[in-house]
Design a protein around this nucleic acid. Structure first.
Lengths: 326, 326
DNA sequence: CTGAAAGCGCTAACAA
DNA sequence: TTGTTAGCGCTTTCAG
């Protein structure tokens, strides 16, 4: 910048004005400065700017795994909103490890991100207190913060969606509906179990519930156990997209009715098409990011708790009749 | 930091030493400093550190779209390597727009990223010259830079993979093999067309080639035209993952033999399973990131041009016999 | 409309 | 082992 100034024969501040598009610079002077900038290939050092201004124009995003279609869809939506606002996105995958989540968040904070969107992996977020107190807005998406913290949250209607799936299967004559859900320590898994249980009411049978991370071998074993029992299920409700796919692979010729939580690519091309309770990850990302920028613009209202609806998409697998062989 | 120093009764520099784990601080002093840090909730301002040290510990990644499984797989791998090296990742999607690619790159550079990994959307990257000259390493992944720039590149064997797909179909008795590829302005699409053409030799028939962005309607129309002709294809070779999926949806009951470039989730569960030429996006990301860090460690050898092999996975659709109805 | 000086929070270089 | 000083490149403040 110093070089540009002397090349253009002006003071530092004038270059700064031109670079920032501030008013009050004679057009001819501005032109000379721009010429010098081009000639010298100057580009402003954002770190210095940040240091001086105290705002980084950077948003931090912590998700579970970018390679998971749900989170990559959410990421893309967040990114678009962030770019629209002239900011940049620092992102990281926690891999469902609370320690890595915390490390990422702390690193982001050390870099003074202007705001944070996170899908938490852990259930203790009191470590965010200092940041929140200094006014850094944080929005939780997909899962709420752990106890003792009340901040903006954008969740899907997990309980309602699960209940809807179960009622759909009940409506098609099923009475033995198994639930295969992820580790109950994961918020969404626990919520969906609750919706399942509520909708089943007296038909609930804990022997039809499996709650664990969907590793192919364990899923195969669980299905074998379920179907080899005296009173096997006629329908399955799977608790998330990854679980649904794993179950489909592990079914090995069995064809129970099936509804999965989360939509996934090609669900419509399988035979039968896979009925799902669909969330909209891009919508969730957009809503979370827009809420964050609203906070950054100064909205200081009480924490918001937004719940996004889900919708059941019938494609065939969830409409197979109960008790009927096929 | 000043506050911490006075709280601990030491000088600024001593706090700095403790924060950076530099040697030569009395354990007791260090302990006092750490106590003050905890008490005051201090966290180092990275912007100031960056300004002083000149290195940001940040890598920029520009891809086409995080929501595309190929790129999200690549992203995740890059992210893992970046984190291993104690750095953070700034990422952005160009959406296949050269203008946005350039904006992202320039913004990243203004923030003085230590290095850049990019999947280019445009074909003119001379704007990178100044950055390259200041020593910022850049690695191109999936697609090479435009003319006039020779930098590190990690590509898949597009030509060889396409040729392999075609030879596979030829081997199963097909003579009329159509190629449905993306816009030929996209490097990988052009390369795969070349491999297709080379493998077909005298059997090449330009009427069996469609090169355009895979919008559902146009794909439907193209397929109708191909199959309604006098001498329709008995096999299809699709040029990328998105194209394959769009074609599968648009086939509308037709069942030609099919091999797709790029693997995708559930390809194995369709009936018949979809045979593909599989790339490994995570591998590509890892190789690119590791090459970048090698450069950052000072490796100043000539630009490297790494080509990753691809492999054909037979799942059924590519093994359907030619000329046979089914 | 333009410029000079101060200082953002940190680390490098150099004492003590 | 600890402290002092200068300055990274920019923007803010205040003065021409």
């Amino acid at each position: 910048m110093k070089d540009v100034a002397s090349a253009a024969g002006v003071a530092l501040k004038t270059v700064s004005r031109v670079v920032n598009g501030e008013p009050g610079v004679h057009p001819a002077t501005a032109e000379r400065v721009r010429a010098a900038i081009d000639r010298l290939g100057y580009s402003r050092n954002e770190s210095a700017r940040v240091l001086r201004r105290g705002t980084t124009a950077t948003i931090g995003l912590v998700i579970e795994d970018v390679a998971d279609p749900f989170y990559s869809g959410l990421s893309r939506a967040v990114e678009d909103v962030v770019i629209e606002h002239g900011c940049l996105l620092l992102s990281g995958s926690s891999g469902e490890e609370p320690g890595r989540e915390r490390e990422l968040v702390e690193t982001f904070c050390a870099r003074r991100v202007d705001g944070l969107i996170m899908v938490p992996a852990g259930d203790d977020h009191t470590y965010l207190r200092p940041e929140l107190e200094t006014g850094t807005p944080v929005v939780f998406a997909d899962r709420p913060p752990g106890a003792g913290l009340d901040v903006d949250t954008v969740l899907a209607d997990n309980v309602g969606g699960a209940a809807q799936a179960v009622r759909h299967l009940l409506g098609h004559g099923h009475r033995r509906i198994a639930f295969l859900g992820d580790d109950p320590a994961i918020f969404t898994a626990a919520e969906r179990l609750q919706g399942y249980q509520e909708a089943l009411g007296g038909l609930f049978d804990e022997r039809l519930v499996v709650m664990r991370s969907p590793a192919p071998e364990s899923v195969r074993a669980d299905l074998a156990r379920l179907f080899d029992s005296d009173d096997p299920p006629t329908a399955l409700f799977t608790g998330n997209g990854r679980y649904t796919v794993t179950v489909l692979r592990a079914l090995a010729g069995r064809r129970p009715a099936l509804v999965g939580f989360d939509d996934f690519e090609l669900a419509d091309l399988l035979d039968p098409g896979v009925s799902v309770v669909a969330q909209d990850p891009a919508w969730m990302g957009r809503v979370a990011a827009e809420l964050l920028f609203r906070r950054l613009r100064g909205d200081a209202g009480p924490p918001e708790h937004i719940q996004l609806p889900v919708r059941l998409i019938a494609r065939g697998s969830g409409e197979l009749p109960g008790e009927a062989p096929y």
